[in-house]
Design a protein around this nucleic acid. Structure first.
Lengths: 144, 144
DNA sequence: ATTAAATTCATACTTTAGTATGAATGGATT
DNA sequence: AATCCATTCATACTAAAGTATGAATTTAAT
């Protein structure tokens, strides 16, 4: 505190001395104005020239393991092969391992009807057995 | 720090005194020097006072957690069910949609042998039909 | 109204799948 | 040596699957 006061006093004395020496000249005021002006110019320049620092934060996100493509059914292929709705029902039950009699029971149809549908499926899928039909239907994603 | 500032100030005053002696020579150069000096002072000040600009860029990194669990085969389940090597061979060919005769042809076996293997498979898998056997084997990941 | 396709059912037949039982062989274990 | 198991094959039978053909009905489209 004392040091500060002393410093202030010294500064004041020197300043008054300076004033006494140059008070008749307005040059100091002019120079002071220049100083302040260019100080602000410097500040402005600095603000213009400094590049922003970039903080790169890497966030790791888990990808969905199974994008949904598994449960997807290729409707286009079904239409292209000309497989009807009823035939798809039979095909799905067949792929679950059901016998013709069981499929007939579930769909309230006769066994000959199921056999007809299956025969048509074999023709459209170009196969000879129900196991082949299931394999091909799964491969073509007609069934899950 | 305070002492340094004080010293600088004193130096400045002395220097201005010197300037008074020579100001008649080249006032313009002096003013130019002052300008440049205070410009750099401004830049220095700006750098000290302004907070660093930080642009936070968030980069999302997508990770695939499950490599290829699809083609995996559950060997443990096969052993637990007591399914033999030969039976697995028959099971795989069966799942490809092959008839008993075709399987027999590929493995150089008689049809009765294939029937025996398949009957044993049905017992171990607790099913009644080959379509059921295929469905269950796939579900238990005994076959791809 | 006619056509076309989907759906249903039937009958008769052939083929394949599946069951039951028995048996021979070779390798590994006790 | 005896036993267990996997593997092989056979015969005889039943059940289910698959083929072929024909036909009636419904529904949507031309």
């Amino acid at each position: 505190m004392y040091g500060i006061a002393l410093a202030c006093l010294l500064f004041l004395l020197k300043w008054m001395e300076l004033k006494w020496m140059v008070y008749s000249h307005s040059m100091d005021i002019y120079i002071g104005a220049i100083s302040i002006l260019f100080t602000f110019l410097g500040i402005w320049l600095a603000k213009q020239l400094t590049k922003p620092k970039t903080n790169t934060i890497i966030v790791e996100k888990w990808l969905n393991p199974i994008p949904v493509e598994n449960g997807l059914i290729n409707e286009t292929a079904i239409v292209n092969l000309g497989i009807s709705t009823r035939e798809m029902e039979v095909l799905n039950l067949m792929a679950k391992g059901m016998s013709n009699a069981e499929i007939a029971g579930i769909l309230f149809l006769s066994i000959p009807t199921i056999k007809t549908h299956i025969a048509n499926l074999f023709f459209k899928l170009e196969v000879k057995r129900r196991t082949q039909a299931i394999e091909k239907a799964k491969r073509l994603q007609l069934i899950p």
